[in-house]
Design a protein around this nucleic acid. Structure first.
Lengths: 343, 343
DNA sequence: TGCATAGATGAAACCGGTTTAATTTGGTTG
DNA sequence: CAACCAAATTAAACCGGTTTCATCTATGCA
């Protein structure tokens, strides 16, 4: 256990340099090569990663900074990252910034880079880092790419929130709805503004007037969906016939509250969510929602980062991916349990 | 960018050895130490991880083998692992075996160890590896610990499935149920057998006869819950008044099918699930279920591994953690909350 | 004040690879 | 068959740390 290149060289009767050439697929006479390979096999030899990293300056490791892997949203992205890295022979050191509110964690990315522990860093959503550190890292000239299903970033890969919202709302207008409310995410957040503007754009594209009073601020939490539904129910007959929630948790809150009030979904009101979290399919009525290509996002971001790391493509580019509308029951698009009106 | 220990030594006017001592907190005169620290700060110096790893033989990295990080179940475990490793200054290389059915992935763990890329490996559920490779690794004398919320393992940390099932079923008998069915997981799986025997034990502990015909085989999938519910409904008036499902997906399948048949949960039949997946709380009726301490599991397993790595505790031990019963609506233990409260 | 000695520091070897410059090899050509 | 040249191989230096062993310093005590 623990053979070194010198051992292999001795057994094979060649020099260390030759063994190194065999390892790295450089030109070696085939008879020599097979002698070396045989010795390597015999010794169960595996090159020491540290020694290689020390001389080559490359670690074949990518740092992934993520706010909580337990979150299925980020988990899916990391899954895609892993797939891409794996296919190109890279490993991934995952660091979660969520755990310790500790400010120190934030420097983890920069530290990994300076220690040469990682060749590049993939930041899953800029939220994983404070703006200051993020900017500092960005201009440090270290390979860095941002993967994000939500907000806008300076450089990296993201999903088009505007387009996603347009798809959701257009789905509702196509079903004949003219009075469509939106329950927003955290008001100031970029992704939320993008979704809001998608909502607005889709309405206006269908010749429907945008009404401020139909925009209910939420905060992505289930309870804020419940609260929003309360406000809408209070409108009485002026209530909208459709609701677009900026994420699935809020959509579920909306629906559960409406149900408590005896209002049927999708019979009386159609609801569309966003994210397609796992619960969306099991929820009753099953949620119509917007699915973001998270695994794909991770893959694309990882490949992008590797091309930067390997020097193939030095300039930073912004890539935009499309979200997909998943039509289930809550929007009343297809015949389901309920028999209510369709428009 | 990229200062070395020699640079620091030169600037500080000392030898490399002294700088090394400062880095590793060895005894150094305080005046000397501050000179060195100042130089380090001035150069924005960070020791090269490869160089350190090469001489010390330690990488401060732990390999984590997991079947799909996107899975919230494993994600939670990894989350705990990360927290523990982080608190002790270790990094984590995550490898998912699920992606490429590629046999080669399986050797990833052994390879990381031989390359000295990782000081130890944490296998999240032995399923992540084929039995052969697993055994091979186990007896290789490399630091290895298994963390598993489900099945039994040769060594490592796991959750007590037997006890979890007992808690679930005892909850039902405490509520007065005498005719309790169980929808099982994959028949041969260890964790399933343990849950089954917990079910049986709890029944007999309450003086209730175990009936083979009330055990419906499932496979953990939602649809198998639906199928199981069908069978139970076919029993007509002989139908059980309570159902224990070996996981939440099946519990949801059972409930949704019963609901289609006009059978109310928990009004007519009480249902208890297992796992407490995220959907369990949003599902209506909210699921009473057994929550496994997954984050805790990850933490304990990681600390265990580190103690092996650091030589504190060489012998392999088996640690058993307790699951917790989460009482919500589906078991009818408390008045059904329908205003959208999520617990 | 001088000396003994524990403690701090430095020089050099070493960890296990890669790479450059020098040397050997083998095959081709005249 | 000798000379020659390109390709293959080797020896040695190097990457950036740690560690051993020798040397030097600064105390404590006489």
């Amino acid at each position: 256990m623990g053979a070194t290149i010198a051992d292999v060289a001795r057994i094979a009767g060649v020099s260390k340099a030759t063994v190194s050439r065999v390892i790295n697929n450089h030109s070696v006479r085939s008879t020599t090569r097979s002698k070396v390979l045989h010795a390597m096999r015999q010794l169960d030899y595996e090159p020491n990663a540290h020694a290689r990293g020390l001389t080559s300056g490359k670690s074949s490791v990518i740092g992934v900074i993520v706010p909580g892997i337990a979150n299925q949203f980020y988990g899916a992205i990391v899954d895609g990252v892993q797939a891409a890295l794996d296919s190109r022979g890279y490993h991934m050191i995952v660091t979660s910034t969520g755990h310790t509110a500790n400010q120190g964690r934030e420097w983890a990315a920069a530290k990994m880079l300076k220690e040469k522990r990682a060749d590049g860093v993939l930041v899953v959503t800029p939220r994983a880092l404070s703006p200051d550190n993020f900017m500092h890292l960005l201009k440090s000239s270290f390979p860095l790419v941002v993967a994000d299903g939500h907000s806008d970033a300076l450089s990296g890969v993201m999903v088009d929130n505007f387009e996603g919202a347009v798809k959701a709302v257009k789905h509702l207008t196509d079903l004949g709805h003219r009075k469509i409310a939106m329950v927003t995410g955290i008001p100031g957040a970029k992704e939320n503004l993008q979704r809001l503007s998608g909502y607005r754009d889709a309405l206006e594209g269908s010749g429907i007037e945008f009404r401020r009073d139909l925009v209910i601020p939420g905060n992505y939490a289930y309870q804020s969906g419940v609260a929003a539904a309360k406000k809408l129910v209070e409108m009485g007959k002026g209530m909208p016939t459709a609701i677009f929630a900026a994420n699935d948790y809020m959509a579920m809150g909306v629906i559960n509250h409406l149900s408590v009030c005896g209002i049927k979904v999708p019979g009386d009101v159609a609801v569309v969510g966003y994210d397609d979290i796992e619960s969306a399919a099991f929820f009753r009525p099953a949620l119509t929602t917007v699915r973001q290509p998270l695994v794909e996002l991770g893959k694309v971001a990882a490949h992008k980062l590797l091309s930067v790391v390997e020097g193939t493509e030095p300039e930073t580019v912004r890539i935009l991916l499309s979200a997909e509308l998943i039509v289930r029951d809550s929007s009343g698009a297809k015949p389901v349990v309920s028999n209510g009106q369709v428009s």
